[in-house]
Amino acid sequence: MNKWMHDELAVVTMTVNGHVYRRAIEPRLLLSDFLRDELGLTGTHVGCEQGLCGACTVLIDGAAARSCLNLAVSLNGKDITTIEGIRKRPQFPAIAQSLSRHHGVQCGFCTPGIVASMISEEEATQEEMDDLLAGHLCRCTGYVGIREAWKDLIQKKAGE
């Protein structure tokens, strides 16, 4: 076992939801655990730690990414947005309303990750939307309400 894994801390500086954080952390700490345990941002959910379920999706420099597949230490200088930041954006209310109106939420565990994907690809076509949605597992809804909600947003945008 490598000794440095246990004892040495690395200093990382990153912007999370507009605030700059400077922390000494273990190099092995996952971004998902950093956000939840170090910063108390529990809106990011961990479902598999294997990059498969998509629940932990956040924005890294604006692009949707799995926070469980990134080491926090590797994101020095990066700009991270979690659901706690996304919900302050002007586009958020329309997304939330559409998801609710189309019953795209049941247990809500996968939802913040899906919202991160939705907001990261605002210009998505319907085909791209299906691709993006395939990166998120939901066991409650059969994806029907989520698809409808997203489709509705795309159509409204096209109509603008």
Binding site: R36, T42, G43, T44, H45, V46, T82, I83, E84, R87, I95, A96, L99, S100, R101, H103, V105, C107, G108, F109, T111, P112, V115
Partner: peptide, 19 residues
């Protein structure tokens, strides 16, 4: 009727056991 649960869940303010 739309769900009262949705607002907090979509905003990431649900409180699950790990939280």
């Amino acid at each position: 009727v739309s769900r009262v649960e949705d607002e907090r869940l979509i905003r990431g303010q649900g409180r699950f056991i790990a939280d």
